[in-house]
């Protein structure tokens, strides 16, 4: 089975980003960059499926040259080779259309992507890709077994492949839904699907020798004019800090008499 998995280089979501005084841009200088955490879960799932079913795991990133670092990280986890589409920042729609081209070339059985990137938080690219390809989609993949279960310790994949279908458990409003999608398909990952492994030292050494093919975006022949443009950035409105209460009794009194929520 051949799996295409995407990794986006994003600003560290635990650090606060700054905005230029005129609100025209986000200052990324000096920021720490990491692989999108949902994409690391996607890479992990791809590696587990490869272990169970054989085949190849190809990592794709779209971005500037420095996204090579994030591809190498995925290769160090165990992925086989990488493709870097050299490009400026794209909107979700253009990302999906770039991936359509790569899918046509690579012909994977499964594309696994993080459900959203923690920088633009769009949560669209996987669904768009499936829509453009006419493939079925299983978004927000999770699994029945908990992250502290034996199955997780044994690195068992959460996505079940059988009879040409992928069975995927999804956490939706009010419960857990299981759907079966005919391969080829697009799966996007949620937090509870797995704990991504850390790269081992031998893995890091091996990754240095693995192929990362660079593809200039112009060579793909697609129009990447954004359909959604960010025109301005601002700090979110801040909520004022209230008061500190001395003890539980005062807290209950305030909630009853002042906030009137009890």
């Amino acid at each position: 089975m051949k799996i295409l998995v995407t990794v986006k280089r994003v600003t560290d979501y635990e650090r606060k980003v700054k905005i230029t005084p005129d609100g025209s841009a986000i200052i990324t200088e000096g920021m720490n960059f990491v692989p999108n955490p949902f994409d690391e879960i996607a890479v992990e799932e791809a590696l587990r499926l490869q272990k169970a079913h054989g085949g190849e795991v190809v990592v794709v990133s779209i971005g500037a040259k420095d996204a090579t670092t994030q591809i190498r990280q995925a290769l160090a986890m165990g992925a086989d080779r990488g493709i870097l589409v050299l490009s400026d920042e794209l909107d979700s729609d253009a990302v999906a259309r770039v991936l359509v081209k790569l899918v046509a070339e690579e012909k994977p059985d499964l594309v696994i992507m993080g459900k959203q990137a923690t920088d633009d938080d769009a949560n669209q690219a996987g669904q768009l890709l499936a829509g453009y390809l006419g493939w079925p989609q299983a978004t927000f993949a999770s699994k029945t077994e908990g992250l502290e279960s034996e199955a997780e310790k044994a690195q068992k994949p959460g996505v079940v492949i059988e009879n040409g279908e992928a069975l995927v458990l999804r956490e939706v409003d009010g419960g857990l839904e299981t759907i079966a999608v005919t391969l080829p398909a697009v799966v996007t990952t949620d937090l509870r699907l797995n704990h991504p492994r850390f790269a081992s030292l031998p893995g890091i050494m091996k990754a240095k020798k693995k192929e990362v093919k660079e593809v200039p975006i112009a060579s793909l022949g697609i129009d990447v004019t954004p359909k959604v443009k960010n025109v301005k950035f601002a700090e979110p409105p801040t909520r004022k800090a209230g008061v500190k209460v001395a003890d539980v009794a005062e807290l209950v009194a305030k909630l009853k008499n002042e906030a009137k929520v009890l």
Binding site: S92, D121, Q124, A125, Q127, G131, E171, D173, V228
Partner: peptide, 27 residues
């Protein structure tokens, strides 16, 4: 919602249209 997040971007692809996610209001 969970369903809205799942289905609406796919509809955007079918319509070849742009989509803004999780909108808070007009600017």
């Amino acid at each position: 919602t969970a369903h809205g997040k799942d289905v609406l971007p796919r509809a955007a692809a079918l319509l070849e249209a742009g989509m803004a996610s999780d909108v808070l209001g007009f600017a």
